[in-house]
Computed example of a mutant assay.
Amino acid sequence: MNAHHQPQLPLLRSDAGGIATLTLNRPQARNPLSEAMLTALGEAFSAIAADRAVKAVILAAAGPVFSAGHDLKEMTAHRADPDRGRAYFADILGRCSAVMQQITALPQPVIAAVEGTATAAGCQLVASCDLAVAGEAARFCTPGVHIGLFCSTPMVALSRNLSAKHALEMLLTGEMVPATEALRIGLVNRVVPAGEALAEARRLAGVIAAKAPATVRLGKRAFYEQREMGLKAAYDHAAAVMVENMLARDAEEGIGAFMEKRAPVWEE
């Protein structure tokens, strides 16, 4: 059986140097967040969450489009259902939201490497990642408003990454945001020459992978926990986390190494 007749996997995974790279792999369909893609992402994140060898994750995409978001053909087919698709829409949106929350809950930091366009739920996917690197030709938008379908679920991730004015401008206009503007408004961390987003994401992942893994896991979790709290509760929570952190073996080693002017040796 030659390669052309093998079913195409919607998602590819490769691991090197403690970094897992997940690549959306349906370029001819613009990497939609279809049922198959959401299932594959969910399974990959579950496997990575339990994999102590993985210190950081990169989310990339094959082809000229990062992700066009929900598979509208798949969704429209269910308008013929007796309930006009209500149960299906609720299910697919719930599954998509669960995958976005998996990224936030993942112990390891996730870095999006974006070339081309990331639209609607594809833009939500970038906003849901902890960090994002964009090639200078990358573009972002939440275009639902053009077709009478406000991007309400992408709004959750956008509104937690951008200021209210910037998030609402994207949501209300549906206009394309170029990479440099995405950098200015905080949707991405850095912009690199076109074609170099993956290389830069790997460099960034390498910097993170060299840190104490237990400390990174603890810090990422605490960041998202405190962000949903009021000021006093956030400080109380962060202080309690820091007490536990101070008593952890890696902090003792790291502080000792700093004072003794030597390189720390982290636990796995």
Score class of each variant (00 low, 15 high):
M242I: 07
A238I: 12
A210M: 01
D236W: 02
A238V: 15
V243L: 08
L204Y: 09
K232A: 13
Y224N: 09
A199S: 09
A240K: 10
G230H: 12
K211R: 14
G206T: 03
P213F: 00
R217A: 14
G206L: 04
A234M: 08
A222P: 05
V216D: 05
M242Y: 13
A233N: 10
A205G: 00
H237I: 02
E244K: 11
Y224K: 05
A233F: 11
F223L: 13
N245Q: 08
R203A: 14
K220D: 00
A199E: 07
L204C: 06
A212W: 02
K211N: 09
V243D: 08
G219Y: 02
F223Q: 13
V243F: 04
L218G: 01
A238F: 05
L204A: 09
E200I: 08
T215M: 10
N245C: 13
V241W: 01
P213K: 01
D236M: 04
I208S: 04
A214S: 09
A209D: 06
E244H: 07
V216K: 07
Y235W: 15
R202D: 01
A199F: 02
R221K: 14
V241P: 00
A212N: 01
Y224I: 06
A199R: 08
G206Q: 06
A201N: 05
A222K: 04
A238L: 15
A238T: 13
L231G: 09
T215D: 03
G219R: 02
A210Y: 01
R221L: 06
V241C: 10
E200W: 08
N245I: 05
D236E: 15
N245V: 12
P213E: 08
I208R: 02
A239F: 09
E225T: 12
L204F: 15
A233R: 09
M229Y: 00
K220S: 03
N245E: 12
A233Q: 15
M242L: 13
K220H: 01
V207N: 11
L218P: 04
A238G: 06
R217I: 07
P213I: 03
P213R: 02
N245H: 15
L204V: 12
R221A: 12
Y224S: 14
A199P: 04
A209K: 03
H237V: 01
A239N: 10
A238Y: 04
M229S: 11
A205N: 02
A240W: 06
R202L: 05
K220N: 06
Q226T: 15
R227A: 13
A214R: 10
E244N: 11
R202H: 10
M242F: 14
A234F: 03
M242Q: 11
K220V: 00
G219E: 00
K211P: 05
G206I: 00
Y235I: 10
A222D: 03
A212T: 01
R227V: 06
V241L: 04
K220A: 05
E200G: 04
A238Q: 07
A239C: 10
R217G: 05
V207M: 13
K211H: 13
V241M: 08
A214E: 11
R202N: 08
Y235E: 14
M229K: 14
E228K: 13
A239P: 03
Y224A: 07
L218A: 10
V216H: 00
A214M: 09
R217P: 02
A209C: 05
E228I: 07
A201R: 03
Q226K: 08
L218K: 14
T215V: 11
V243R: 11
